[in-house]
């Protein structure tokens, strides 16, 4: 028993030494630590928080946030966070609950000011009213969670974040409001520009790969008539692609929109058969290196649409 006791003491001492040497150096930081589940939320939080906050995103914009896993490094970030901002509407349902349980940080638990579920500050599309079954695929009963793709929702989120940061850090409340005002002014300039640039899309029928562009269609006025995935989250088969080809020909649909992380084979196949052009849209901040702000995101989406609509050389 004595030997065991010595071993235990040694392990604890070693661990404590590690903790002492590495940990307490960073604890004097005064900035509000904001952790977001996606880079879109991080970009908005950065625009509002400026130098008064330190923002980290748990997932990169190059990956589908629904399929993230709760890594220890993410637990670590949530453990130290003052404010946790999430997409909600079941987007992070697979990994955020276990992460919150491991992170043991009561500040960012639901119901406290440090927990901000952004889906409650926007109007969600596609809220299911009837019974929902997983036989329908990966249906989000609480509504479509891809709402950051409507710039008006970006503005709603920015406003809510400014208010919440002001609550958590009252000393800088005015600064947060000023940055929100600047964000809104930029939006007042940018939104009409994007709408003008994409005016030709108005009323056009478009095919989407996944059910993730409903909000983009809502703001820019195009119609998503079908998806490549037969059901959300279910990969297309030869038969479903065949049916889609019939529809594309019948309704003379000319454009497919998709996220960069989906397979391109279906898009190439549809292009060969029908001439359907694919616009690979950056779906999030960080999806491309050059997209670092929320405004860059829609500049990038506009550019991707333009590129797909431009006359192409024969391949």
């Amino acid at each position: 028993m004595m030997k065991n006791f010595n071993l235990l003491s040694a392990v604890i001492l070693l661990a404590a030494l590690f903790a002492g040497s590495a940990g307490f150096a960073g604890s004097a930081e005064a900035r509000v630590r904001v952790v977001t589940t996606t880079q879109d939320l991080a970009a908005i939080a950065e625009a509002i928080g400026g130098d008064d906050v330190k923002v980290e995103s748990l997932t990169p914009g190059t990956r589908d946030p629904h399929y993230a896993v709760a890594k220890p490094s993410m637990i670590r970030r949530v453990f130290r966070a003052d404010l946790l901002i999430l997409i909600g509407a079941d987007m992070e349902i697979g990994w955020l609950p276990p992460l919150l349980q491991s992170a043991r940080n009561s500040k960012v638990l639901p119901g406290n000011p440090g927990f901000m579920d952004m889906s409650r500050f926007v109007q969600l599309l596609g809220v299911q009213s009837g019974p929902v079954s997983r036989a329908l695929g990966d249906v989000h009963a609480k509504g479509n969670p891809h709402y950051w793709l409507d710039p008006r929702n970006g503005l709603r989120m920015a406003r809510a974040i400014a208010a919440r940061l002001g609550e958590i850090d009252p000393d800088n409340a005015a600064a947060y409001q000023n940055r929100f005002a600047a964000f809104a002014r930029t939006m007042e300039i940018k939104l009409p520009q994007w709408q003008a640039a994409l005016a030709s899309l108005k009323g056009q029928p478009v095919i989407a790969y996944h059910k993730s562009f409903d909000y983009l269609a809502d703001i820019f006025g195009f119609r998503i008539v079908d998806e490549v995935e037969p059901k959300p989250g279910i990969a297309p088969s030869a038969a479903t692609l065949g049916a889609l080809i019939q529809r594309i020909r019948r309704e003379q649909i000319s454009l497919l929109i998709m996220e960069p992380y989906y397979e391109r084979r279906s898009a190439r196949y549809l292009n060969e058969k029908t001439g359907l052009r694919a616009a690979v849209l950056p779906q999030s901040v960080g999806a491309e290196k050059s997209i670092t702000t929320y405004f860059d995101l829609f500049d990038g989406i506009t550019a991707a649409f333009k590129a797909a609509q431009a006359p192409q050389e024969d391949q």
């Binding site: 509407a89 639901p110 119901g111 927990f115 579920d117 409650r120 500050f121 406003r159 809510a160 208010a163």
Partner: peptide, 21 residues
Amino acid sequence: VGAAPLPSPSLAEDPYAAYAA
């Protein structure tokens, strides 16, 4: 958007209610 009132937190509508105290 600028003028609409901010929704106030309500546990009943919160999809994370199961994880809330």
